Simulated scan of single mutants.
Amino acid sequence: MALIENLEHEDWEDFLRSCFLYTLEVLKEDRFRSVGSSADDLRSWLAAGGVARVRHQLGQQMHRRGLSEDRQVAIHQCINELAEEHRGALLDLTATGVIPGSTQD
């Protein structure tokens, strides 16, 4: 199930947090290993443009799927919190070239 589909459920925040952590681990340990579609979405977006790309892709998908404005704001806020909480891991991945550097992140 794609990440956006999981964010439509009531327990979306726990799912997003665990998926984000798992994806960071995968990117650090073996970024080419087989993962589920939700982690694959995050992995590809992070590798293509970092957290800014995650925000952009999720924003587009949330709009297309008609998520409520409140849910969209909450998801963006959660992504921002995750980026801040895991800044060190994200910076390490940027330093090793796994995630591209960006002034937006």
Rank of each mutant, 00 (worst) to 15 (best):
M1K: 13
A2C: 05
A2L: 09
L3E: 11
I4C: 01
I4S: 02
E5D: 14
N6A: 04
L7I: 03
L7M: 12
E8R: 15
E8L: 11
E8S: 13
E8N: 09
E10M: 06
E10F: 05
D11A: 12
D11Y: 09
D11S: 12
W12V: 01
E13V: 01
E13R: 14
D14R: 11
F15H: 14
F15P: 00
L16D: 10
R17N: 08
S18T: 09
S18K: 13
S18G: 01
S18R: 14
F20E: 01
L21M: 12
Y22T: 10
Y22M: 05
L24D: 01
L24V: 02
E25G: 07
L27E: 02
K28F: 03
D30W: 02
D30T: 00
D30Y: 03
R31I: 02
R31W: 05
F32Y: 13
R33V: 04
R33D: 00
R33I: 04
R33S: 03
S34Q: 14
V35K: 02
G36W: 03
S37K: 12
A39D: 07
A39N: 06
A39W: 00
A39I: 03
D40Y: 02
D40S: 06
D41M: 04
S44F: 06
S44N: 14
S44V: 02
W45A: 00
G49R: 04
G49I: 01
G50I: 03
V51G: 01
V51P: 00
A52H: 13
R53H: 13
V54K: 11
V54I: 08
V54F: 07
R55G: 00
Q57A: 10
Q57M: 13
Q57K: 14
Q57T: 05
L58Y: 11
L58S: 04
G59V: 01
Q60A: 07
Q61N: 06
Q61Y: 08
H63C: 07
H63D: 11
H63Q: 12
R64G: 04
R64L: 11
R64H: 08
R65M: 09
R65V: 10
S68M: 09
E69F: 07
E69N: 08
R71V: 02
R71E: 03
R71S: 12
R71K: 15
Q72D: 09
V73Q: 15
A74R: 15
I75H: 13
I75Q: 12
H76Y: 11
Q77E: 13
C78E: 15
I79A: 09
E81T: 13
E81D: 14
L82M: 10
L82R: 11
A83D: 13
E84W: 07
E84G: 02
H86N: 15
R87L: 06
R87P: 01
R87N: 09
R87H: 11
G88K: 09
L90Y: 10
L90R: 11
D92R: 14
D92F: 09
L93R: 02
L93I: 04
L93T: 03
L93H: 11
T94D: 06
T94K: 05
A95C: 05
T96K: 14
G97V: 00
G97M: 08
G97L: 09
G97F: 06
V98N: 04
V98T: 15
I99C: 05
I99P: 01
Q104R: 14
Q104C: 06
D105P: 00
